[in-house]
């Protein structure tokens, strides 16, 4: 229990660092020096020290939203087997709970955005309600695949210890598609390029960033930290699949896991540097690709299972 607690806390503490890595990669591609790697910590501390300005249109939901979405992201992290170690919680069906907790966070992000009466935020909220529908369908397809492979429905059975390697052995080629599909879901759910652009704030075309326009001070800090945690959660899952090997030496395993995590974040950064954000009507196509890939992986796995 104690090591799991430590891993959980370290995940929260490290999440901002990794998020800053993306900025560094982007700066590298642009030929700039970029912000320091601790920039997100500075931002968080700065925000926590500030006060807030609330819109006169808002209600208590606007204040509840940031805390609740942060709480949901934290709860999701409690189920993540960091570096393949046992997570804080694990029980049958926990994956479904985690997905629904993230949905709860989304509900309140949308509700907080609708609270401001701003048309821009409404626009972002509508998109935030739209794309995850496809994402969730894809996610559940992936779950079906993993269930077929392991006959178990908990994160532990997919991502803990030697399980990922076992998955690769059982169904190598489909799992490849699962990794890609999961990566697309990661980009969509965490509002990264090419679905959303976290770098610009004030445009009509944004999703997540426009929804948090009116938040300030500690509330904004909660949102930021929550989104770092959420990104860490997805990246942790992808990293376990990308680097499924176990050396048997705990310290080395830990190091290798963080290297794999680093690779995932760098991949996100590279994506953001080399791609432009899609036009809004192209985004569903992109997200649908992850659904198609997951579906395809399921079919192929069934074929291979024969």
């Amino acid at each position: 229990m104690l090591p799991s607690m430590l891993f959980f806390l370290s995940a929260i503490l490290l999440a901002p660092f990794f998020a800053a890595l993306i900025l560094k990669v982007k700066a590298f591609f642009a030929g700039k020096k970029g912000p320091p790697l601790l920039i997100q910590y500075y931002t968080l501390i700065k925000l926590f020290q500030k006060g807030s300005v609330y819109s006169t249109s808002t209600t208590f939901i606007f204040k509840l939203g940031p805390v609740l979405s942060f709480c949901c992201a934290l709860s999701a992290l409690m189920f993540l087997p960091v570096a393949g170690r046992p997570a804080l919680f694990a029980f049958r069906g926990d994956v479904i709970l985690v997905l629904y907790l993230l949905a709860l966070g989304r509900f309140f992000t949308i509700a907080a955005a609708m609270d401001t009466a701003s048309p821009f935020q409404g626009m972002g909220a509508a998109r935030e309600a739209y794309f995850p529908i496809i994402c969730e369908a894809a996610m559940f397809l992936i779950l079906i695949l993993l269930y077929v492979l392991t006959s178990n429905l908990q994160i532990k059975a997919f991502f803990q210890g030697g399980q990922p390697l076992l998955l690769w052995h059982k169904a190598g080629s489909p799992l490849m598609f699962v990794v890609i599909a999961l990566f697309i879901i990661l980009l969509t759910e965490n509002a990264r390029v090419p679905v959303d652009d976290p770098a610009t704030h004030l445009e009509l075309t944004m999703i997540h960033e426009v929804m948090v326009l009116d938040h300030s001070g500690p509330d904004l800090a909660f949102i930021e930290l929550g989104s770092f945690c959420k990104l860490f959660f997805y990246a942790g899952l992808v990293a376990r699949l990308v680097w499924p090997f176990e050396t048997g030496v705990p310290a080395l395993d830990l190091l290798l896991f963080f290297l794999a995590l680093l690779a995932v974040y760098v991949a996100v950064g590279v994506m953001e540097s080399v791609m432009a954000r899609y036009r809004m009507d192209k985004v569903p196509k992109f997200v649908l690709t992850s659904f198609a890939l997951a579906f395809f992986a399921v079919i192929v796995t069934l074929e291979l299972a024969k």
Partner: peptide, 21 residues
């Protein structure tokens, strides 16, 4: 992992690209 099956699944995927592009 069977390499031929991997190749073949890539071919299947390429059909998707041809449909989508």
């Amino acid at each position: 992992m069977n390499y031929i099956d991997t190749l073949l699944s890539l071919v299947l995927l390429s059909i998707l690209f041809s449909f989508g592009s």
